[in-house]
Design a protein around this nucleic acid. Structure first.
Lengths: 167, 167
DNA sequence: ATCAGATTGACAGCATACTTACAATATGGA
DNA sequence: TCCATATTGTAAGTATGCTGTCAATCTGAT
């Protein structure tokens, strides 16, 4: 039996290819809208998480935003170099360094929000409102259902249980 | 007037965050299914494109798969190091190096296809068939409509016009 | 014919993303 | 108490992904 001929559809129609392209488009739009603040999408997510969980450590931060722990080390360094966050040794565990926003970091977060919102809206703008909603619903489900297939699964809740914030 | 409180929803509900997570999940699944072949998603796409357009050059390859030209330089180097492709100087243009698959490259492409198909199917498996289709349709549309927002827009057709394959 | 401007591939530099390894430190059980 | 095991941050190595820049080369308008 003849095997399928190989065409560019093996690329263009592949879900993985579309996810990659969309991610690149999303980053390009984010960076463009937020150019004035010199902040990347990853750095933004880290700042939000540190703001929401003051005194979190790098390992738990990684679980809360589902970013790789090693990568996050570099991200944290850059945020610290920009004086947006500070690192303090934990009094309870000498291995751990706690993360908190600086005043500048908190201020930046407040100021950048409108630009971020504009960027997020722009990514979906080409679709009709009903389609935007449908896409986001399906994508949320898929990401959630595939959580364990990720190299760094999201652990939003139980990551905090060890911080003394939950029973 | 009070401003919106900042919660993790500013991250979790953002389209850009979901696109990033899904891309990372997609890569993890691809690499896992294709581990035996030691090929990344990007390298796979490049091989398909070179197979479909033998004698293409790096710049046009970049346009055909919408990957960054600089990045592609490294990808090509690695494919060449693995002896999956060859580079030949163009007789018409001394700047250009033409890309073609080696026998090993063509063989690998044939053999890896089932694994790639399995990976692509696995990414969408958690959704119901109708939802898979709906998601792919919406995502295809969105990527296409946002093409120009990308740093490297897809130029599938006109990229070939200069190769002497079209009028 | 010639030259200004474009194109090509290469390189340097920064930022994610992941792997493995490692030293310092914690922790729980014998 | 003491020790096997786990965790934390860090670092080195590889692979995208993008920004610049540059020299070699090509092209088109004059």
């Amino acid at each position: 039996m003849p095997s399928k001929p190989i065409t560019m559809d093996a690329v263009y129609a592949a879900p993985g290819y579309l996810f990659r392209r969309m991610q690149q488009i999303a980053v390009a739009i984010f960076v463009e809208e937020c150019r004035a603040f010199d902040l990347t999408p990853v750095q933004y997510a880290a700042l939000i998480a540190i703001h929401t969980h003051p005194g979190i450590d790098a390992t738990r931060l990684s679980a809360v935003i589902a970013f790789d722990r090693s990568t996050l080390g570099n991200v944290i360094e850059r945020l610290q170099a920009k004086k947006l966050i500070e690192r303090k040794p934990s009094p309870e565990d000498k291995r751990v360094k706690l993360l908190i926003l600086t005043k500048a970091g908190a201020a930046l977060l407040r100021e950048i929000m409108p630009s971020v919102d504009r960027a997020q809206a722009r990514m979906l703008r080409p679709l009709k409102p009903a389609d935007r909603k449908a896409l986001m619903t399906l994508l949320s489900q898929l990401v959630d259902l595939n959580n364990e297939a990720s190299r760094v699964p999201l652990r939003a809740e139980d990551a905090l249980e060890h911080l003394g914030k939950s029973p």
